[in-house]
């Protein structure tokens, strides 16, 4: 599971923004929202006749595989970096 998401934004004539997001504390704070999202996903699975356990398992695999992902986009003096660890 991802532990830390790093976001860096560089814009011309602005101070660079660097944000480190610790995933677990954020998920704990947003726990009620997470529960609602999971419930909505379960309802969607039932409506579209998709195996709930299989769907949740696949979604968990995707989340677990996120660490190591790295997106770095630069144009001129503007740059956005998102790194998941």
């Amino acid at each position: 599971m991802p532990q830390l998401v790093t976001v860096k934004v560089n814009r011309p004539d602005h101070r660079p923004i660097r944000v480190w997001v610790p995933v677990l504390p954020v998920v704990l704070v947003l726990f009620p929202v997470v529960v609602l999202v999971v419930l909505a996903a379960i309802v969607a699975c039932v409506v579209f006749r998709i195996g709930v356990v299989r769907a949740l398992g696949s979604a968990w695999r995707v989340i677990s595989a996120l660490p190591g992902a790295h997106f770095d986009i630069e144009q001129g003096r503007t740059a956005v970096l998102v790194a998941i660890r």
Binding site: I50, S58, A65, A69, I73
Partner: peptide, 21 residues
């Protein structure tokens, strides 16, 4: 301009399983 993307292959495999649904 430069785009530099690194995606874990494990994420692609998980995405394939999710896409199967």
């Amino acid at each position: 301009s430069r785009v530099n993307v690194r995606v874990p292959l494990q994420l692609l495999r998980a995405g394939v399983r999710l896409a199967a649904l």
